[in-house]
Amino acid sequence: MINRVLIRIRVIQILYSTYQNGSGDLKKAENDLIFGLQKSYDLYFFLLLLLVEITETYTKRVEARKAKLLPTNEDINPNTKLIENLFILQLKSNIQFIEYLKERPLSWEGHENFIKGLLEDILKSDTYLDYSTDPVSDYESDREFWRKIFKSKIYSNEQLDDILEEESLFWNDDIEIVESFILKTIKKFDYESGDQQELLPMFKDEDDRVFATKLLRESMFNVKNARDMINKYAQNWESERIAFMDMIIMQAAITEILTFPSIPINVTMNEYINIAKTYSTQKSSSFINGILDAVVSDLKAENKLLKK
């Protein structure tokens, strides 16, 4: 689930923090990296849990209305499609989901008002109206309902973004990426898999796990070599005048170019230029692009690039 885009961002953040603090402690940096990536995976389960919490809130609402002193006919005979939604029932019973929440307890406690407001928004939506009045009731329609609701009511929800940022500083940069993986997970669910349905793993494969730690480690080992290359081509710029974040981004990019022969150069350059657009100054992306172009040209001329 944690893709290389997110890994690169987290490595840049750890490098920035490490050098700002002046520690240079590799072991601490590696521990911080693993902790940060674990928090990203926590967010994945926290958002899945939100779907369950919304359903539980609706269930409590239905039960409370039935218990009223003078219940209406609608109170006594509520629409229970949301409660009986087969996708949510499958998610609630998912073994991996249950075990993860036992090991790393996550809770929406304290955000009840947000969940109630979100539920009201869902119940007023055309998506819910179509779903609740559709005489066809099957697993596919139940799963598709939640895919549509997540995409329209939860994805890019500003109030939710604020809550997530308050819950964890690590989630600020993860939200959009992890939300896209929730949509992928919903689409992937299969009724036949029952409670054994596979959720997305923390890393797609062992290569990505290795990529994360190796990129950080080699970036710290390679700091002098990378900065010498940067200074060589930063014409009219003393290293002290280059934005510190730009220096960190270029340091990681050069390290990746030199260390991972299976990753195409243009992929590496594009990824770090995109990071610069988000995390550095307005002119950083073009500046970094120019420096990296010059470094790559020099490395090619000296036959120092071994790419598969």
Rank of each mutant, 00 (worst) to 15 (best):
L118D: 00
K151H: 11
R8F: 02
L164S: 09
Y128V: 02
A253W: 03
K66D: 03
E271K: 13
S262G: 03
Q38I: 03
E109L: 08
E74C: 05
S40K: 02
T281A: 12
N94H: 08
V5S: 10
E158C: 07
S297H: 10
E103P: 06
V52F: 07
G117P: 07
V136T: 12
N303T: 15
N94S: 11
L89K: 00
I98Y: 02
D190F: 06
V267D: 12
K304D: 06
E109V: 15
S262I: 06
F46Q: 13
E240Y: 12
K92S: 04
S168H: 09
F211N: 02
Q196S: 15
K277D: 07
V210A: 13
T18K: 00
R8I: 08
D208C: 04
A252E: 01
Q196A: 14
Q196F: 12
P135G: 06
K153N: 10
I7W: 00
V136A: 11
Y41V: 04
Q197Y: 03
E120K: 04
S262F: 05
Y128P: 02
A29L: 07
T18Q: 01
F114C: 09
R241Y: 15
W108G: 05
N73E: 12
K300C: 08
S285M: 03
M1S: 15
A294V: 07
I249Y: 07
N231F: 08
K60S: 11
N21V: 00
I83E: 00
K27N: 12
L86T: 00
R104Q: 05
F114R: 02
N79F: 01
D75E: 04
R209G: 06
N266R: 13
D208W: 03
D293L: 14
T278P: 01
I95S: 09
Q90C: 06
